[in-house]
Computed example of a mutant assay.
Amino acid sequence: MHRDHNDQATIAEAGGKLTTALFMITALLVGFLASSTAYAERIKDLATVQGVRSNELIGYGLVVGLNGTGDSSNSSPYTISSINAMLERFGINVRSKIATMKPKNIAAVMITATLPPFARPGQKLDVTVSSMGDSKSLRGGTLLLTPLLAGNNQVYAVAQGALSVGGFTAGGNASSKTVGHPTVGRIPNGANIERAAPTTMHSGQEKITLQLNNPDFSTIKRMRDAINSNFGTDMARTIDAGTIEVWNPEADAIELIARLEQIELTTDHHAIVVMDERTGTIVMGQEVRIDTVAVAHGTISVSVTESPQVSQPNAFAGGETQTVDRTDVQVDEEEAQLVVLPRQVSLSTLVAALNAVGATPSDLIAVLQAIKAAGALHAELRVI
């Protein structure tokens, strides 16, 4: 009996280990399957609410206090006119001295800022100040009081303050050195909002309209189904590939939008290959696929060298000195590596195969264009 008891304990222990092993294998399989599926994204990151938008502001002003790096009177006459107009507001008339003014410590600038949605008077904005004339640097300058206007020509903010400039320039008569970009600066919290941002949204509106950042028929359908599934009713309907309308039965748009933003769904994207020929950058999405195709890449280089020589006759030969042309032509052709890419190859396999061709980024762009021309690349090529 004692032996039977030990055997039962051994069997139980072995069964427990087997159960643990099966659990670990199951967990690994689930993790593998989860990692192979597409990641879910929130509606908050995929779409915007119609009527909730930012507004761009712009203004023209003067930066003072520069250390001799301001605008010159010859290249920037509008700076002189601005100084004159500013001084006249303070009761100072310098019109007779305009011709002799040299504003080395003043620069004309453009000020830009973004007015966020639902902004209210009294809140602060960051502003960017950019030189408009031939100023060499805005470092150490102070922006004078400047109104910021929106597209409707109404003033929504007023900016003023000391600039923060990352770059600088230094030098003398013979040479100079510039580090960074000294003609653009920022003023954190440099503008006060004077007027509320316009908006067409209110809490009791009949419906909410969502607009996809990247319109897509598959994604918009999945979003509609996810919303209806989450609320348990047909609250959402699609208008087009980038627009969804969601009814607001509780007359509480804030609560509805907060719930909508947290709904998750998997997205679908177009197969696109983006190429930048200036930098040799190539970006491909996982949706890119190709048909069976053979790719060979090689480089042919031709070098032509002119080496003229002088033909000098002997002293008593009676001939004439002449120049004889000598041309050396060399043709180098690299061995091409023929690589077969199978149909419906994955992105990782495609990248490995293209790397095996031995092409540089610039040549790789030509290879991809050739595969597209052959009708084997199922993706849109975009050159930026």
Rank of each mutant, 00 (worst) to 15 (best):
V357G: 07
K124F: 12
P361W: 10
K207S: 11
V345M: 07
F90P: 03
T37H: 11
A376E: 15
P147F: 08
S307V: 13
T37V: 13
T299I: 12
T299W: 00
T305S: 13
G375W: 11
P313Q: 10
L29R: 10
L143Y: 03
A356H: 06
E13L: 13
A107P: 00
A14C: 07
V367Q: 09
N173P: 01
E56Y: 05
T321M: 15
E264Q: 15
V165D: 02
Y60E: 08
N355T: 06
S82A: 15
D325H: 11
L18P: 10
I83Y: 07
R259L: 08
L265V: 06
V179C: 01
L125S: 09
D240I: 04
D276C: 08
Y39P: 04
G242Q: 07
R289I: 11
K124Y: 11
R139N: 09
T243Y: 04
P215H: 09
I244K: 00
A196M: 11
L87E: 09
I254R: 07
P215C: 12
K104M: 09
P342D: 01
S175T: 09
I193T: 00
P77C: 11
S72I: 03
K177Q: 14
L29C: 14
T281A: 15
M284N: 04
D216A: 10
D71A: 08
E56C: 01
L57Y: 01
L338M: 14
T305N: 14
S35P: 05
V30S: 11
T279V: 08
L22G: 10
T26H: 03
L57H: 01
K207E: 08
V109I: 10
A317I: 13
S175V: 14
I239R: 08
L148C: 02
Q344I: 03
R222D: 06
R259C: 02
Q312G: 04
Q337P: 02
Q330I: 05
S75G: 04
G375I: 06
K221H: 06
T128G: 03
L18R: 15
L338F: 01
G298I: 08
A191Y: 00
L364M: 15
G185Y: 03
A47P: 04
V383S: 10
R222K: 14
G61N: 09
D276L: 06
T323Y: 05
I272E: 05
S164K: 14
T209Y: 05
R186E: 08
L265I: 12
R89D: 13
A191S: 03
V357P: 00
V351L: 07
T233Q: 15
S35Q: 11
V273W: 04
A296H: 04
K136F: 03
N228Q: 09
L364P: 00
F231S: 07
S135T: 09
A107R: 01
D291N: 07
G65R: 03
R326N: 14
V64N: 03
S137D: 04
G68N: 00
Q154R: 15
G232F: 12
A14Y: 11
M86L: 15
R186Q: 09
G358H: 02
K102Q: 11
N84T: 02
F23L: 14
I80F: 07
L163S: 01
A170R: 06
A366P: 00
I80M: 11
T178L: 10
